[in-house]
Write a protein that binds this DNA or RNA. Structure first.
Length: 939
RNA sequence: AGGCGCGUAGCUCAGUUGGUUAGAGCGCUACCUUGACACGGUAGAGGUCUGGGGUUCGAGUCCCCACGUGCCUACCA
């Protein structure tokens, strides 16, 4: 069974099977390492742990999964994020790190509440009718039933998280930690309550933070209204984009320096419609250069006016309720929606002659991030976090380099935001979430902040204080996750080992929402924490001073857009469902696409054609494996090599015994690929890593190596011993290449790897096998040079054959000229390969250059001519040669200009000059040869 | 209004501190049912790197301007 792979690669069945296996076998579960059990535990006994002394602490790699909302469905952004995390996690795990990837979900206050409300609406029910307790119960039911959807989807991606440690932000232990944090901050004076203007969503009926407001430029109107000045026949004209708020005006402000209004200082205006006398005040809020220089002041409905109102002790008249409907203070407009009221107010103003002008104006409308409703600034009692003291530590952690942010431009963005941060509104008027641990005494009004529900008021002793009805902003609890998931506030061994986490990978969108908050909370609450020193050292962070930070590195990934570069959004209907892409091309191909397109700095315009290409790549690997298995089948049992005999190690490929040029070459190429891939991953260059593996697997291994060794595998009367050696080399090479690819394409590599081991793999999964590293002893520069000559020769002959339109099956004779001994060596030693791969009958050495003979190709090392009766297309050949000559001439001219420039010779590095000179020599030869050919065919 | 990014082959994108011949995938052309693979093979065509200045021995790469395009931040009525 193991060697019978179906002819065509079909990812669906394979992937589902392994995804299930990884979860069932708990392969990625990490027990808390005790202080004793951290000794290095190598994968094999062959001394492969080069550079890893035994009996030292193991390095640790910890990553927190940005918790998806329980309401979430997987989108491309998640998949990119998780692909990148999984690549790094698998890579570290294979390199012997204690690797913990912690998964969980977020209760997502507003989003989840909305979801359940919608469900209730279908049943004709309303949240308020059923009451808070019933409703929350209902949300929990919903969560149990549907909340796991996104995690199930994650399993399909192959995310190698530790499912044994899965959390939910409303779990009891995490909720306890949230209360603890609230109480401590309150006791430190960092949480306060007050009545301020906040962003209010009339649909969600709750306050939201600045970050949850999305601004949108809309073409709107600016209305100018004149207010009559009491006791004169003058008017003051003010402008507004929200005329309905004038009903709550309590003053008109002008600038003290504005001479237009000097004579009106101390006077009052009569507020139209409301017929209320309000003062003209002097305040800096009014800028003389803007409009009329006079501003209406509505302290209850505008944040600036609120501040101005406080400065002048003005009344705050609320004219709207929590649904943004006009209330009793709005007089005749009571009961109207804010926009109905706007229309009515404008009509009345116009009728009464107060409306002066209506101008087109671009307004930045604030909309609720969740539901899109236009936000209304509203005066209300809320809880706030005093943010500056927390921000200071968070700034220091990044400025000092204790936390690195990649790409680096995000560091400045983060810092700018932190410098200008405002206090954080943390209370939400929702029912779903962490209830604020505050109780109000109905008797004496005492405010009780406590970890557990108080049975009586500590001040007056009256029974049953009422708990505050608000819940906390969802980000308040998720901001604590790096330490609460490791057992905080207890001091745990988990925290000692896994905190600070190593890395956080996330999208730019939540840099402020989440990343910034985690840094603030981590630096504050984990101050004084020490990570296990030996492990910290082993992990490469021995030089870091601050172990309070929630993570040592942040990597911000790009945004996934659709093929037209549009941001994917439900309203646009251009959302690409990753599950659909996966069903069509496979998870491996989709992962590979995301990795290969993840160049830093630019967003990803996801293109399915790329995914199709990488599905083809998987198919290529699949078939190369089939070819390998086909040949293994033909080996006698006694000769069958163990696929990993000596192969399953870190450095190079230990079991590979090169005998031929292509053996030496592919071994060298493999090691170079391993070196490059490791380097790229170190720098989060997923695109480089993916492309490098692609080129190696397809371009080197399949296109050349397998083609070259075919005769050693397929010749009927071959030497069985050589055959076995060849197979051994192929299998060890292939096995190592699978390990190289595994982090990016976990499924296909797992499938083939198990097949190679005939059901008896050395580890339960390739994911637990070591990751290849370069062995410098296996670099072979001469082999690479010689192979390049061989490839040049073969390609030249193929090229000539194509041009001469030689029938594919016909074999041709070739004549080769070279004065280069190395070239001769290559030809002598690889005559058979040349004949077979290039369709050559005989190779003749000539002592004379073939350059002027028509059907020929030249490189600086050799000329090769095909002996064939068919005539070339003279005109086409002439054109080709002319074009080639032009290119050569251009390059020669270019090179000469530089080489004759003293400045260049003096200033350019020797290496560059040397290279140019060598190239100039080559070009001279090539030009002579090309000219000769042109002359020969009468050009 | 500020800030950031992008503009390279028909399409989607690479191109590391400026250094010899600007790469890949898809698409395109021609030929090929060669015992791993047509989701394949072989050989090709296709780019004055948006435009204009500048720095430099040397610019796709650095600077300035323009045009086009995308995003983020912002309490200016």
């Amino acid at each position: 069974m193991p060697h019978e792979l179906p002819k065509t690669y079909e990812p669906g069945a394979i992937e589902a099977r392994w995804a299930e296996y990884w979860v069932r076998e708990k392969l990625f579960h990490v027990e808390t390492p005790s202080s004793q059990s951290q000794r290095s535990d190598h994968f094999d006994s062959e001394g492969s742990g080069r550079g890893r002394p035994l009996h030292t602490a193991k390095p640790v790699f910890t990553l927190l999964l940005p918790p998806p909302n329980v309401t979430g469905r997987l989108h491309m952004g998640h998949m990119l994020n998780q692909t990148q995390m999984d690549i790094l996690v698998r890579w570290h795990r294979m390199r012997g790190f204690i690797t913990l990837w912690l998964p969980g979900t977020d209760h997502a206050g507003i989003a989840t509440q909305m979801m359940v409300e919608r469900q209730l609406a279908k049943e004709g029910k309303q949240r308020r009718d059923m009451g808070r307790e019933e409703f929350v119960k209902r949300v929990w039911e919903w969560k149990r039933e549907y909340g796991g959807a996104i995690l199930e989807q994650m399993k399909r991606l192959g995310a190698s998280v530790d499912w044994g440690r899965e959390y939910f932000t409303m779990d009891e232990n995490l909720s306890r930690a949230v209360r603890e944090v609230f109480v401590r901050l309150y006791e430190e004076g960092l949480i306060y309550r007050g009545k301020y203007i906040v962003n209010w969503c009339p649909r969600c009926e709750t306050a939201i933070s600045d970050l949850e407001v999305k601004h949108e430029e809309v073409s709107g109107k600016l209305w100018e209204i004149r207010y009559p000045v009491v006791g004169t026949d003058e008017f003051i004209t003010v402008a507004t984009t929200r005329p309905e708020t004038m009903l709550g005006d309590t003053a008109v402000a002008v600038n003290a320096s504005d001479e237009r209004y000097t004579h009106l200082h101390g006077k009052k205006v009569l507020l139209p419609l409301m017929k209320r006398e309000i003062p003209i005040i002097l305040d800096e809020i009014a800028k003389p250069e803007f409009g009329t220089g006079a501003v209406k002041i509505t302290p209850a409905h505008d944040p600036n006016d609120f501040e101005a109102g406080k400065r002048h002790g003005l009344a705050q008249i609320e004219v709207m309720d929590l649904h943004a409907q006009m209330n009793e203070n709005a007089g005749p407009y009571k009961g109207l929606d804010r926009y109905e009221a706007r229309a009515a107010v404008l009509a009345d103003l116009k009728e009464q002659g107060f409306l002066v002008a209506e101008k087109d104006y671009t307004v930045a409308l604030g909309k609720c991030d969740r539901c899109g409703t236009v936000v209304e600034p509203r005066l209300s009692e809320q809880w706030f976090v005093k943010i500056k003291p927390l921000a200071e530590k968070a700034i220091a952690a990044v400025e000092s380099g204790e936390i690195t942010i990649v790409p680096e431009n995000y560091k400045q963005i983060y810092l700018n935001w932190m410098y200008n941060i405002h206090d954080w509104t943390i209370s939400r008027q929702l029912w779903w979430g962490h209830r604020i641990p505050v109780w109000h005494c109905g008797n004496c009004g005492e405010v009780i902040v406590a970890r557990e529900t108080p049975s009586s008021c500590p001040k007056c002793g009256s029974a049953k204080p009422e708990q505050d009805t608000d819940v906390l902003d969802t980000w308040f609890s998720s901001g604590l996750l790096p330490f609460t998931t490791l057992g905080w506030p207890e001091k745990t061994r988990d925290a000692e080992v896994f905190y600070p986490t190593t890395l956080l990978i996330t999208a730019y969108e939540i840099l402020f929402f989440w990343v910034a908050r985690m840094i603030m909370f981590g630096c504050h609450f984990m101050a004084g924490h020490r990570q296990d020193a030996a492990m910290k050292q082993a992990s490469g962070y021995g030089d870091k001073k601050d172990d309070s930070v929630p993570f040592r590195n942040v990597y911000i990934h790009a945004l996934v857009r659709d093929a037209e570069r549009q941001k994917m959004s439900k309203t646009k209907g251009n959302v690409l469902d990753p599950i659909e892409v996966i069903e069509q091309y496979g998870t491996d191909a989709t992962r590979f696409t995301l990795a290969a397109m993840a160049a830093p700095g630019t967003d990803i315009a996801f293109s399915e054609s790329r995914t199709a290409g990488y599905r083809n790549f998987a198919n290529k690997i699949w078939n190369a494996a089939r070819f390998m298995f086909m040949n293994i089948e033909r080996v006698d049992a006694g000769l069958r090599p163990g696929a990993t005999e000596g192969g399953c190690n870190y450095a190079g490929i230990a079991g590979f015994r090169p005998v031929s040029l292509e053996d030496r070459w592919i071994l060298s190429r493999f090691n170079r690929a391993a070196e490059d891939v490791n380097k790229s991953l170190e720098m989060y260059r997923f695109d480089e890593a993916a492309n490098r593996i692609y080129d190696f697997f397809w371009g080197d291994l399949c296109d050349w190596y397998i083609e070259l060794i075919k005769p050693r595998l397929t010749s009927e009367n071959g030497n069985p011993e050589e055959f076995a050696k060849t197979i051994r080399n192929l299998t060890t090479l292939f096995e190592a290449s699978l390990r190289l690819l595994h982090p990016i394409m976990p499924f296909i590599t797992e499938e083939i790897w198990h097949a190679m081991h005939e059901g008896k793999p050395p580890k339960k999964s390739i994911a637990l096998a070591p990751y290849p590293e370069a062995d410098e002893m296996q670099f072979d520069i001469p082999a690479e040079i010689q192979m390049a000559i061989l490839q040049d020769l073969i390609v030249s002959v193929r090229n000539l054959r194509a041009e001469l339109k030689v029938e594919p099956k016909a074999r041709v004779s070739i004549e080769v000229f070279s004065h280069d001994p190395e070239t001769w060596n290559v030809i002598q030693n690889n005559r058979e390969a040349i004949q077979r791969i290039a369709g050559v009958q005989s190779v003749t050495d000539t002592s004379e250059s073939q350059a002027r003979q028509a059907p020929s190709r030249s490189t600086s090392r050799f000329d090769v001519r095909v002996d064939y009766e068919k005539k070339i297309d003279v005109a086409a050949e002439r054109e080709r040669l002319a074009k080639e000559l032009e290119k050569i001439e251009k390059e020669i001219a270019n090179g000469q200009r530089q080489l004759s420039n003293e400045q260049f010779l003096a200033k350019a590095p020797a290496k560059v000059v040397e290279g140019l000179k060598t190239r100039a020599e080559e070009l001279k030869v090539l030009r002579a040869k090309t000219l000769a050919k042109l002359k020969e065919i009468g050009g």
